[in-house]
Design a binder for these strands. Structure first.
Lengths: 225, 225, 225, 225
DNA sequence: AATGAATGAGTATTCATTCAT
DNA sequence: GATGAATGAATACTCATTCAT
């Protein structure tokens, strides 16, 4: 759904509101006539996420994307200006969700260790729910360079600094040990999350919640020194 | 030097050994005639590592590699069968070094926490010394899939299992807490190392040794529970 | 106005006449709602002329035309069958005006040198007033080849032959020298006019009238031998 | 031949000297195996000139060029960086020849009317010999805009100014009348030449020399006032 | 040991146009 | 009268690789 919202930015103006509601259950001839579900935009983004995560951005051709999405190339370029634009949508959707969660957790004003645990668990859970997006993001993060991506870089930095500040406060208050610098610990935490798609398997025995707790245990124990 | 050894493996059949000992003397001429230092092979691999780490494997053209290496395309294909072959060399050189170090550390038979620390510090140090190789490795690891890369996959798994076994033994002996599973902890450790190229800057204030100790502190504290 | 008349000819069947007289009043609404002046058709043709003259026909996309005209693509295809159709309108409007002027001049029955001067001055003046149209015409004249353009080719030939006949008569009467053939002189005159858009600048110091006289002086001196 | 020389600029280094001479009569397997004559570069340029003059630069696809040249697309891009590069070569070859001729004529130091006649005749003759190149040049001259073309713009301006200066001197000396400005006359002369490809037919009854003299007669008569 | 010409399949993107609404 | 989604063929250009020399 967040995807739908964000794609509207590059689509010619038609938002989800214009589609989903009542009275228009058929969602257009095109969608109904295809095997795949969802709007044209959603199908394109889903196909792109899947392929980018499997093969990498450069190794994925636009041809492959439109074939998997069962859409013509022209249709794709009707909604997205370029292949890069598609990547932007993917990044944007992922970061937006996580930032919203972060703000909610910070607003709750819990004790530091609880806040850290909540953040780690949320990161692990949202990442587990969006393994492919995270894989793409981690692998192609150098593409955040252009002007287009400036807002996303800022979002990412805000998340990073929020976590680091929590660690700093904990070290000042004596709740956390200072053996490792707050910056290093923060980088470690994001490093762990970014690597998750490399090894976490959703069909494994551990639930995302369990894994999140396990990682939070480890991180908090490390912070306790 | 390790690079030199490994490239012989992939030379298209006309390896040094195949040419007979006599021709050896001429090898230096090409290198001396160019502005850059090192043998032709070394220059090619160095150029490839640099470009792969900056732009990714797919985004790097053979043309770019030979231009940076100041070598003709024909020359490159004289030494390497393909662009993939170049990637193999890079992986091989990195894994070989780290496995050799691992064996040395294990052979020393130190107490478990010391061994873990030694491994983490060594990984951080060798990674800091080969940031680009590690960046390539982490990013393009899915390319280990083919037959060609089977040996490398096995090496990597051996390293992984050695570390996990140390953790398991520590948990059995009660030296380490069991709150996080040995497998998860191991994956976390390699995750941290693989992410290092994303944020470690060699010109920063921390030496690799310091950083290695800091990370080892964190990991051991996490293991201590 | 000439444009307005001619476009009716190419409208896809739903011309004003076809719609019935009643609907006429609404025609102004669209124009008033936009920033640009003029009817939708006039805006489209003006945009096309400008772009074709700046970039050439092939280098101009329909998208660019409708953007400059502040019109949707669908609207454009409502009025014009194709991009070629637009070119036809431009040619048609230009040639019609000039042929009308020619007939007026010929009908006046002045002495030969005066008639030649009047024609040259008129050509220079109407060309200066429609520099862009002339630029398009001169550059894309090979597109007059198709069936569609047959009438325009005939018009052009009539103009050419009228001028040549004047020269022939002058040479027979001894008013003009015969050093250069009448055909060559005629081609030279049209060549000069067709090239005008390449160098005549409306904001320069010479008025079209002055320039026309200067060129007529030159041509008549050449004819005088 | 001039074409061959100029293309060497963008070819990888192999000049005509490396081909044409003795001992290599076969001119390479590729050339001998094809129906068309000449080196790969010459065939490509010839095909491009022909198509550009027939259809225009934009209307001509690279595919068409390589098909007519009986060359693969890759081969074309081996020798020319882009389609624009091809245009540059065509312009360059044409302008170079004409400038060389101009310098020879100016160096002869003949009386003004004779010099003007020599220039006009030479322009008409070289243009008649390179009708297609001139057609392309006249039609696509707006492409001289980019940085790449700066040298060509300068050459063209030099030619223009040389002719204008001759006219100015003639007017000062009283050899030529001043009814039309020197600048206008110069523009007229080049206008006539640029338009030549539109109507001159090499299979017609007039030889280039005859036509050149006829045009020179007309121009000199115009100048005499 | 090394060159550079040549290949041909593949790339992302743009195009004029159609059509249901 | 006008919209905008959708098409599919065409575009210029790049690629890793081969091969005769």
């Amino acid at each position: 759904m967040a995807v739908g919202r964000s794609t509207a930015r590059s689509a010619a103006g038609r938002t989800d509101a214009g589609r989903g509601g009542a009275g228009r259950g058929a969602a257009g001839r095109g969608a109904a006539g295809r095997g795949a579900a969802g709007s044209v935009q959603a199908r394109i983004v889903a196909a792109a996420v899947g392929l980018f995560s499997e093969q990498g951005f450069d190794a994925t051709s636009v041809q492959e994307i439109v074939e998997r999405a069962e859409v013509t190339k022209g249709a794709m370029y009707h909604y997205y200006r370029s292949k890069d634009d598609l990547l932007y949508e993917i990044y944007h959707a992922l970061i937006s969700t996580q930032l919203t969660d972060l703000d909610r957790i910070l607003a709750a004003g819990r004790p530091l260790p609880d806040a850290i645990r909540a953040i780690v668990v949320d990161l692990v859970e949202t990442t587990a729910a969006r393994l492919e997006e995270t894989a793409v993001f981690a692998r192609e993060s150098h593409r955040l360079a252009g002007d287009r991506m400036a807002a996303l870089r800022a979002d990412r930095r805000r998340y990073h600094e929020a976590v680091r500040d929590l660690v700093v406060r904990g070290q000042k208050d004596g709740v956390f040990a200072a053996s490792a610098s707050a910056e290093t610990v923060t980088l470690i935490v994001f490093g762990i999350v970014n690597q998750l798609p490399q090894w976490y398997r959703p069909d494994g025995e551990k639930s995302p919640r369990q894994l999140g707790d396990e990682i939070a245990d480890f991180v908090l124990a490390g912070l306790a020194g």
